[in-house]
Amino acid sequence: MAEATFHAGAHGAAVHAGGEHAQHAPLEYHPGLPLSNGKLIIWLFLSTEIMFFAGLIGTYIVLRFGAPTWPLPREVHLSEPIGAFNTFVLICSSVTVVLGLEAARANKPAAAKLWLLLTFILGSVFLGVKLYEYNAKFSHGIYPWRPHSLVYEKADLNYAAAVRLRLDALDAQLKGEETALKGEEGSAADDVALANLAEKQKVVADLKVQELAAETKAAQDPDITVRHAELEKLADSIMPLPLHHGEEGGLNHEHRWLKLPIRIPGGNMWASTYFLLTGFHAIHVLVGLIVFFMMLFVTLDVTRAGMVENIGLYWHFVDLVWIFLFPLLYLF
């Protein structure tokens, strides 16, 4: 061995002296683990990902158990069956990616591609369902952030003030519509529209009275909770906290245009963490989908099995994260 090395060295020097472009010796290595470099780095990358999600999940746990109240899933319109369905979809996609790997290993590129296509579709279904769920939150006024969020923690004076502001805004808006309509010459259609408007205005006017009463009662002494019962009643009539999933009611439900602030104890922090966790998870799913999509243009024969395996590892990880998230967010 040593001899060989010696000669290589002498040879290298000779090449040099000749002024030719030096060829460095092709080096031999002494790998510490029986893995390809690609697989090793994927494992290492996944361990950093584990810490990333550990940070996020840790945050969730700290905030949740440090919070005075935390909403029940139904209060924030979370549907366990939908979540369970999505979990199932993701687990299936983990299976299909394994089958894809088997096919690639067996040097069946067509089969492998089919399995990856299926994985891609399952991942897309997952994201689609996620989007549907997000949309459901948004339609209830639950956003992770303030300017759009209609969520208030409790029915206190802040809440009342927000309701008042929204009612004033509606008032002004309806007035504007009214003058716009009246400015035109009377036609048949206008009467219907005006009747509609009048109805809306009545709803707003009634609510204003109710709101004012509740607020004045509560303002007598902001410290005394009993007087807040009025505000609770107001909040309930706008949008009651659901008793079990699917049951909706309240003015916001009856009149979708109202968009009045709602009360969900602990709802804001819930929304922040829910969107944080599921959002970062969804980004990971999306990255996986992009990679699967690109794989569809590659011949997945046995030489590419390593590639499929690495992507599969990533995909299993994404799946695993969801398996933690689902019970944390939907079940506890």
Binding site: E28, L33, L35, I41, L44
Partner: peptide, 15 residues
């Protein structure tokens, strides 16, 4: 860091 780890684990010279 992931690159360094892979390199150190897998690419040491013989011996």
């Amino acid at each position: 860091s992931v690159n360094y780890l892979t390199t150190i684990i897998q690419m040491r010279a013989p011996g």
